[in-house]
């Protein structure tokens, strides 16, 4: 059968071996995602339902939640991230071994949600490179399962062996492209709601 198919361009450029090995690696990675449940508030409850028997995340190979970042490759930020927690969240992310992915579950972690407030990070993409955003407050477990399927589609398109052979920068640290916003980028606000008496502290 293979001999009847025309050799496509990608195969001729990258070599048969690299594409096949990439496919094998990706198949392994996408079907054994180990989530790090960063359950910060109410979305965490929905995350537990998703992992539990009713929604059964095991069907997609991602039910082995580990509470140690060293054993995980998928961080699910489920809940409201405050600035005080931001440091810990990033440290946990840094402790996870490569390759790693992030799902922002719920509007709180995607954009700050209803907490248009001084203490809440207005979207975890300020401090983490997010792969999939899940809207909803909280999103239903099916929506998060959909996000995991989308992430699997994304992993399928990665080229780990090629990246390794070409010596690309795999560091997801502060210098890499994965760090999505530049320093001194201002915090997005949704218009001013400041109620200040005249002459008092300017916002």
């Amino acid at each position: 059968m293979g001999s009847l198919k025309p050799v496509d361009e990608a195969t001729t450029q990258e070599g048969f071996l690299a594409t096949r090995v990439d496919e094998l690696i990706n198949w392994g990675r996408k079907n054994s995602l180990w989530p790090m449940p960063l359950g910060l508030s109410c979305c965490g409850i929905e995350l537990m339902a998703m992992i539990g028997p009713k929604f059964d995340l095991a069907r997609f190979g991602a039910e082995a939640a580990r509470f140690s970042p060293r054993q995980c490759d998928l961080m699910v930020v489920a809940g409201t991230l405050t600035w005080k927690m931001a440091e810990a969240a990033r440290v946990i992310y840094d402790q996870m071994p490569d390759p790693k992915w992030v799902i922002a579950m719920g509007v709180c972690s995607s954009s700050g949600g209803m907490y248009d407030s001084y203490s809440v990070v207005q979207g975890v993409d300020m401090i983490l490179p997010v792969d999939v955003y899940v809207p909803g407050c909280p999103p239903r477990p099916d929506a998060v399962i959909d996000a995991i399927i989308k992430l699997q589609r994304k992993i399928e398109r990665e080229q780990p062996l090629k990246a390794r052979l070409s010596g690309a920068n795999l560091d997801h640290g502060i210098g890499s492209k994965a760090f999505v916003r530049a320093p001194n980028h201002s915090v997005p606000t949704r218009g001013s709601h400041a109620v200040l008496p005249p002459g008092e502290l300017a916002p």
Partner: peptide, 9 residues
Amino acid sequence: DFPHQGIEP
């Protein structure tokens, strides 16, 4: 006198 988005966001 604290605006709810914070004084220095």
